[in-house]
């Protein structure tokens, strides 16, 4: 299910995404309050055949590291675990691509663009909605929060696509 090449790929994506998130993307401020969270890529690019337990563990670790740096207890970890858990249902919902393999790591070039955009939008939306609700935790600023969520989802998607245009991080996997 996972070969050595994939393991190296996963480790690299894990480290590079977190470093980039902390040192670059946390310092970008669009309109003063919009922050792209591109580290969702860690959970998004895990092989299609990875078990939900593995996905949740990796997501939890990544979220915890981000939390320690951002002084946000459990927020990022919690939303990453939820995305990890819901990934199987999201994949089921949008239907797997015809010629998928278990060790394929999905990115924009792996299958067609429309499929990937559907997948990315759902994953990022689940993550951002959970994250911002945990952060806010009351209804006092409902409309500003909704605006923040929508704009952040948009910017995260744009950056995820841009990153994948520059670096091919996914792989199609070998046919068995």
């Amino acid at each position: 299910m996972t070969n050595t090449q994939n393991l190296i790929r996963i480790a690299l994506i894990f480290i590079v995404s977190i470093v980039a998130q902390l040192l670059i993307f946390n310092n970008l401020q669009f309109l003063g309050f919009v922050n792209p969270y591109i580290y969702v890529l860690i959970v998004m690019t895990l092989p299609l055949g990875a078990s939900t337990g593995t996905i949740m563990t990796i997501g939890f670790l990544a979220g915890l590291i981000i939390d320690m740096f951002c002084d946000t207890p459990g927020m990022h970890a919690g939303s990453m675990v939820l995305v990890g858990f819901l990934r199987q249902y999201i994949l089921k919902f949008i239907a797997l691509h015809n010629d998928y393999t278990l060790d394929a790591m999905p990115d924009i070039r792996t299958y067609d663009t429309a499929w990937y955009l559907k997948y990315a939008t759902l994953m990022v939306a689940v993550h951002h909605i959970t994250l911002f609700s945990l952060e806010q935790f009351d209804t006092l600023f409902f409309w500003p929060t909704l605006l923040r969520i929508i704009l952040s989802i948009l910017f995260t998607l744009i950056f995820i696509v841009l990153i994948q245009m520059l670096v091919p991080i996914g792989s199609k996997g070998k046919r068995m």
Binding site: T52, M56, T57, F60, P73, G74, M75, A77, G78, V81
Partner: peptide, 13 residues
């Protein structure tokens, strides 16, 4: 396992 992980996160929060 999912419930345990989320429990840890919410306890932190």
């Amino acid at each position: 396992y999912f419930l345990i992980l989320e429990g840890i996160c919410l306890a932190l929060l």
